[in-house]
Nucleic acid binder design. Structure first.
Lengths: 198, 198
DNA sequence: CAGAGTATTGCACTCGGTGCAAGCGTTGGC
DNA sequence: GCCAACGCTTGCACCGAGTGCAATACTCTG
């Protein structure tokens, strides 16, 4: 995460610290009382900041859980573009999405977060919204791999492949959660994709 | 729509009338000012009811646009179950989803509604939420067609196929909207599916 | 050290949505 | 035809998320 080499200035450091403090506090409260039952005021109070400041760090309550999906999307896109040109769209997507399962992901926390999705519609909603953004983000690269000329009329094909892959991802994660974290997410993903393409 | 044979009682008739009045008024305002810029108070005032009554007819502002997706989902599920047992999951889904394009759908209104999705995240979000409900709704029938024993562990396959099909549907509709309503939605859907399964 | 820039905060406000209770009309039983 | 039960409408008060604004306090740059 910290690709900043030298001193990132006091401001930046405190900013990161506060950001982390809010995240930790909020996730703890969410785990204790549930996402919806926890108010922003509670989080702010528990984190020792004002309600207004909370909204300076996060655009919404959901964003605390979702993290920076925008940045994550960019990383996946980069991974996608770095895949060999010979790979098919599906192969490249599979490999790129696997980078999400990095070493920085803590299984217990992930399981907790996945659990929140189950009973917080607004959370799922924002998550799905972000996936729509990813669709646009990945589309150029997928169009390349599908051999589609980019300038043409609105072509549903690239978006469809990406949407299907992301749906498989979400479903794999959900099934992983239902298994209590025992099943292998990659296996589940592959099973989902195989069923779709059978 | 009106499968009610006899007089559906005065209450029921007025209720339907008010419901329709709200819907018409709201859609007009949405078309004029945009979805987000229109407040519930405006709709209620324009429809001649109180703000509180609005929320007796619709659970949320979004519901006015989304209509009764729950009922629609049930219809699609019935269509799905009515398909020949010999059809594959994809064939059955394609046929069942085609029933959505019934004679009661007005192209101009549909185009307007599709347009609202473009600049109203909350609308898209609720729409996607409903599709998650559809996933569960269709899952048993799709599991049957995939030859999956229902009692087993959480199997991602059926959900994946359904999610992929719904994604293709949404993308086809979106592409249809971008074409200004000229392209054929079914062709777009088929193209999307073909790309996913290629 | 002075000034430019940024972070924090409180305040007031908007908007969506809900619970409650009172009032009124409809409906059905007698 | 009357009365009671029910349902619908409405106003009111309330909550929680999110935003704009302006004052204050802090950090950084020259």
């Amino acid at each position: 995460m910290d690709s900043t080499p030298a001193t990132p200035s006091l401001r930046e450091r405190t900013r990161r610290a506060v950001h982390a403090e809010i995240t930790d506090t909020a996730l703890r409260l969410f785990a204790e009382q549930g996402f919806e039952a926890t108010t922003v005021d509670q989080i702010a109070a528990a984190a020792g900041i004002s309600r207004r400041s909370f909204f300076h760090y996060f655009g919404s309550k959901e964003d605390v859980v979702l993290g920076d999906l925008e940045a994550l999307g960019l990383r996946v896109r980069d991974a996608l573009e770095a895949r060999p040109a010979a790979e098919t769209a599906w192969e490249a997507l599979r490999a790129a999405l696997k980078t999400l399962q990095g070493p920085d992901t803590d299984a217990v926390t992930e399981l907790q977060i996945a659990g929140m999705y189950a009973d917080a519609p607004s959370l799922r909603a924002k998550h799905l919204e972000k996936h729509l953004r990813w669709q646009e983000l990945f589309a150029p690269e997928i169009e390349r791999r599908l051999g589609i000329v980019p300038g043409a009329t609105a072509d549903p094909r690239a978006r469809a492949v990406i949407a299907a892959a992301l749906a498989c991802l979400d479903i794999a994660v959900e099934a992983w959660r239902e298994s209590g974290g025992t099943a292998d997410p990659v296996d589940l993903f592959d099973a989902a994709v195989a069923a779709v393409r059978a």
